[in-house]
Design a protein around this nucleic acid. Structure first.
Lengths: 331, 331
DNA sequence: TTGAAAGCGTTACCAA
DNA sequence: TTGGTAACGCTTTCAA
């Protein structure tokens, strides 16, 4: 910038104002400076500007992966969400800083906040970090989380109505005559716990004769889920329906069920959660609870920017929709 | 940091050194300072450090989308690549800055370089930007591109052997008795052009009686590709095989073919490119050319960091592998 | 081993 | 409308 100032025969502060489009600068002067800058291929140094303005025009997208440290970013749910977030953030004139958070996770959120590398933070999934989020939200406003709406929660969250979606799924299974339902997923993750709760409440409410739901803990990766279900079957457990916490788990369960010689949906009905693109194309096509990820991404960005602007924007829960396909047809 | 210095009763430079783990600082002094910093929840301001050190510990991932400005980041190829890049970049201790480049694209690359918001740049896909990349590589080393290896190319590129992969696909179709092949894709994109060329060369070399290949221009989005193929069929064109430039195009083509009442593979064989997760699950399962995206991501990050360190790391072309499934079985 | 001071490249305040 | 100057928060050179 000093170079440009010298070439234009003015002070750097004048160049700075001209480049920023300040109305204080005379039109001819501005045009002259802009022309020289363009000719020199000059671009304002982002780091210096960030330091001075205390703004980075960047949003941090953090993905805590307490459990699935492996290749979890290849889960279609995450990658879909990332694609939509990138679209949305770019469109708003911000840059997107992407960050996987792996164990040890001690203090990752306060560190992220205080490093000031971004103007706001979007966290994808609560993972095991509910307490950390709650604590951070006490004195940091531009923080929005994708996840489940919990009671007495201070931080701003965007997510699907997990319990409601799960209830739809469970009622659908009961209506199709299923009685022994297995919920496959890790209830230590808040969203998953809400899905399990919704499922259990539907059963209680229905008072269907002899109906029960058992919980089979399983991590969210395809291989781990496959092994869980395979082991469950090998132990001789009896069941006529699987409600999987995610589609990735559901598809793995379908493989394990088929490998054990059971037929879907005749012997076992399967329902998933997410409606990833694959869900419609596996065999048989998977019944699942759809989340509107594009809308979720839009909301996350919208809320974090509104909170950045000082507004106390509240949480949003989006309705879930049951997509019935063949994997849950009446046995 | 000034606060910490005051609390510790030392100068800020001492605090800075202690926090950076400098061996100059006495062990007891360092521990004292670290303890105070931890208690205060102090974290070094990333922007200020970046300005001073002229390093950002950030890699820029840029995705030029001259054509497909819509929702292209939802293409499984991109999202897969992003997931793997995020894994790889995080693992190397860098942050990932993600940026979609949309029209108007005038000067985006020099601007990105000179803003110094990242230590290096990874560009996913050449799109229409070959000339811009060539120009930028003249005086900017830490730039690596995912795409096709072109002749007389200055910039460093990582990619699959597009022509070789396409040749495998074409030879496979010819061996299955197909003669009238339609290549569906936009040859103005370098990678796609290489795939078309490989396909055409395979036909020339084979001298199979009466075999020919026509090119049907089609954008990479599912809807655009569907419309192209639908129109092609509606015009009464005759063909017995489709070689699609990407799996997304292939799957759309399959829909259009089925909608026209033609059977796959009996009437028309279909082959794609990428081997996205969906490919194995559509009906019939899609024959395709596999790209090893995980390895590609690893190479991109590795090369850009080596170039950042001053090494003149060269381009890498990875072999392509034909994955034969039912969509291309002998008619 | 620690302190002092300069400087990274901007922007913003105060004067003129 | 423009110029001068301080300050953003840190690291690093030089001196002690």
């Amino acid at each position: 910038m000093a170079d440009i100032a010298r070439l234009a025969g003015v002070h750097v502060s004048t160049v700075s104002r001209a480049l920023a489009g300040s109305p204080l600068i005379e039109r001819r002067m501005r045009e002259k400076i802009l022309k020289i800058a363009a000719k020199q291929g000059y671009v304002v140094n982002a780091t210096a500007r960030n330091l001075r303005t205390r703004r980075t025009q960047t949003l941090n997208v953090a993905i805590p992966l307490a459990h699935e440290s492996g290749q979890a970013l290849t889960d279609p749910f995450f990658t879909d969400m990332l694609g939509h977030l990138a679209d949305e953030i770019t469109q708003r004139g911000y840059a997107m800083h992407l960050q996987k958070i792996l164990p040890p996770m001690q203090g990752w959120l306060p560190k992220l906040i205080r490093a000031r590398s971004a103007d706001g933070i979007i966290v994808i999934g609560q993972s095991t970090e509910h307490a950390a989020l709650e604590e951070a939200a006490r004195d940091y406003a531009p923080l929005v989380v994708w996840g489940g709406q919990l009671e007495q929660q201070r931080y701003c969250v965007v997510g699907t109505d997990n319990a409601g979606g799960a209830r739809l799924a469970a009622e659908h299974l009961l209506a199709a005559g299923r009685r022994r339902i297995v919920f496959v997923g890790d209830p230590s993750i808040p969203e998953i716990r809400l899905r399990r709760d919704g499922c259990e409440r539907a059963l209680k409410k229905a008072r269907a004769a002899g109906a029960d739901v058992r919980v089979l803990a399983a991590h969210m990766t395809a291989d781990a889920a496959y092994e869980s279900v395979r082991g469950f079957i090998a132990r001789g457990e009896r069941f006529d329906a699987v409600f999987a916490a995610t589609d990735v788990i559901a598809i793995s369960a379908m493989r394990a069920i088929a490998a054990a010689g059971l037929a879907i949906p005749r012997d076992v009905a399967v329902v998933g959660f997410d409606d990833i693109p694959l869900a419609a194309h596996v065999h048989p096509p998977l019944t699942t609870v759809r989340q509107d990820i594009a809308r979720g991404a839009k909301l996350l960005v919208d809320l974090v920017l509104r909170r950045l602007a000082g507004e106390n924007a509240p949480s949003v829960t989006m309705p879930a929709e049951l997509v019935v396909r063949e994997s849950s047809a009446s046995g």
